[in-house]
Design a protein around this nucleic acid. Sequence first.
DNA 1: CCTACCGATCGGTAGG
DNA 2: CCTACCGATCGGTAGG
Lengths: 196, 196
Amino acid sequence: MADPTEGSFSEPETEIMRATYRALREHGYADLTIKRIAAEYGKSTAAVHYHYDTKDELLVAFLDYLLERFVDTIRDVETTDPHQRLDLLLDELIFAPEEHRDLAVAMLEMRAQAPYKGDFRERFRGNDEYVRYMIKAVINHGIDEGEFDDVDADHVTRGLMMIVDGARTRAVVLDEPGALETARQTAAEYVDAVLT
Amino acid sequence: MADPTEGSFSEPETEIMRATYRALREHGYADLTIKRIAAEYGKSTAAVHYHYDTKDELLVAFLDYLLERFVDTIRDVETTDPHQRLDLLLDELIFAPEEHRDLAVAMLEMRAQAPYKGDFRERFRGNDEYVRYMIKAVINHGIDEGEFDDVDADHVTRGLMMIVDGARTRAVVLDEPGALETARQTAAEYVDAVLT
DNA sequence: CCTACCGATCGGTAGG
DNA sequence: CCTACCGATCGGTAGG
C-alpha cells in the first residue's frame, strides 16, 4: 500500500510472492516447498511461516498475486474504436504467453489445482468474469455504434474465451512456435464470422 | 496382450495403472505418492517398485495409459459423410470431459507438468498430432467431395483444436454447467464460417 | 511379491 | 525474524 511500485525492495510479503514465483518456475508446483521458497527469499523457513501460517494460505495469496500480474498485462488498452479495441484486447490475451511464458506456465499449474482447491476455483472464476466483462463491454459498445451485428455478446465472449484459453493451454503444453499466431487468426476469423 | 478386455483381473501393470488413476483422482498430482498408489493397488510399495523402478518411470507409463483411454473415447466414428463425420468427431472431443470428468481432470494435471518433463511433452505432442490427423483427414475428404470450401485444412484443424482444448481446460478449472455446450456451438459457428 | 528399514525431506513449531 | 528441532512422510532398497 506504500507504493514502492518501482523500488527494488518492498514489503516482505511481496518479496515472498516473488520468491514463490521463482521457486515455482524452477521446480514446478509438485516440488514447490516452503524450504525452496525460503531459499529464494534468502531467509529461513520460519521467516516464511511468520508471514503465512500454512502453505495453503501462502498458495492462495500467491494465486491472488499471479492473477493481479495477469490482469496488469491486459489493462492498458486505450483506443475507443470498438473493432480496433477488440483487436488489441485479443492481441494481449493471446500473445501474453509468448512474452510472459513463466507466468503462463505458473498459471496453468495453478489452474490444474482448481478441482482440489475450492479457494483456487473461486478466484479463477472471479478473474474469468472480469476478463469476460471487458470483452463483453467492447462488443456491446460495437453493437451500439452499429459497427457489429446485433449478436448475443455473452455467447460471443465465451466463444473467444475458449480460443484464448485453448491458445494458452496449448502454448504451455506443446510449446510449438506459431501456435499463438494460429490462435490469433482463429479468433479473427471467429470475430469476422459472427460480428460482421 | 493376452486380452482380458472385460476381465475384472488382469496383469499387475494394468492394475497399478488403475490404482494410480484412483490415487490421482483422490489426492491430485502434487499429492500422488507411491504409498497411496500402493494402497489403492492393495499391496506394498515394494510391489509397485517391482514393476516400476522409479516414480518417474511409473508416471510416464501412466501418461501412456491415460492417452490410450483418451484416444479410445474418440475412435469409433463410423459415418462416411464428411460434414456429419466432423460433427460427430467434435461432439466426442468436446463432450468427453462431461462424461469422463475424472479423465479430463487427470489429463490437465499431467499437461501442466509438460514444461518440466520432456517425456510428457513428447507424448502430448504425439497424441495431438494423432487427433489433428483425424480431423484433417475428414476436412480434406470433405474438400475432395466438394462439400467443404477449398480451405487450408491444417489451419482449420488447429483452429478447432484451440476451441477443443479451451473447452477442456475451462470445463476442468471453472466447472461451469453449459461451458461445453457453448464450446460446441462455437466450434459449429467456426466450421460454418470457414468451411461452407 | 513382503517386511523392515534407509537417509532425506516435508510442513510446521518452540524458544529466544 | 533465527536456530534448532519435531513427528510424519517421502522414494527407494536389502534380504528374504
